[in-house]
Nucleic acid binder design. Sequence first.
DNA 1: ATAGATGCAAACTATTTGCATCCTC
DNA 2: GAGGATGCAAATAGTTTGCATCTAT
Lengths: 151, 151
Amino acid sequence: MPKASDDDLAAVIRKAGFRATETRKAVYAFLEKAKYPVSIKEIVDGVGEKNIDQVTAYRILDAFQKADVVTKIDLRHGHAHFELKDEKDDHHHVICTGCDRVEDFIGCESERLANKALKQTKGFPRITSHSLEFFGLCNSCVRENKTLQVA
Amino acid sequence: MPKASDDDLAAVIRKAGFRATETRKAVYAFLEKAKYPVSIKEIVDGVGEKNIDQVTAYRILDAFQKADVVTKIDLRHGHAHFELKDEKDDHHHVICTGCDRVEDFIGCESERLANKALKQTKGFPRITSHSLEFFGLCNSCVRENKTLQVA
DNA sequence: ATAGATGCAAACTATTTGCATCCTC
DNA sequence: GAGGATGCAAATAGTTTGCATCTAT
């Protein structure tokens, strides 16, 4: 993700169509430094300084999604996770069903697969988005002999 | 899905490791005739005759999942959808973000992609499951000029 | 008969809505 | 100043848990 310096941050947010409030800058900055998809709770806690309300977090994430700045991801944890959308690399995740480990992977070939899918369907003119995640037990969970969760 | 005649139903359920109760047979039969992934509410309503409790539905679906009989799917509708797992064709879905339309598609090449993913990760020995869904507006929603939902 | 299955009530978690107040443009 | 943004309280939705009762094996 292109690191927007704290100075440009406001500009980035305005370009997305929003007022560059402290709260939004804080949330955006937090998302920028997050290594993996974060939950609402992590955002609220992680923003630290500026105390932001959980409801506000939901609203900001919602707005960012609509502005195509953020992606909502289902890690099968029972609640949503979010990350900044990166136009260039369409990456996806490998998620451990035993612990919280998440790793990225790129090269999902979504265009090709989407076309393949469109050829098989009757009612869709085009695909606009997709989800793809892989699940498995990570090495340390395998060592600890954790059983595979249904997630 | 191999249609289990109402007679074999009990056997199928027992083989999965459960007691073949009326409730389970009803749920299984309903899943068998469902054309697309169904929600808990649809199951409870659809089973008709035998009034089953929502909680029981959750528990049965949970058990079926653990027995690898059922798959839980995220259509981005805010609640889970379920369908019978079909060993042979690993199919996925194209979901309209304007209405409830869902179509199937097969050939996700998950093995190849999963291997590709494993090569890029450091902490995972193998992939045990995956999710993949495509989203877009269906023809009639496009005609009605519905805006793309973030879902 | 016994352990698993079910129903009902109640708890819990995630997310959304209403409204008064605040702050950016 | 005006309209979008935020916080607080409260509602809603989905899902889970506890426990007494029932039933398939």
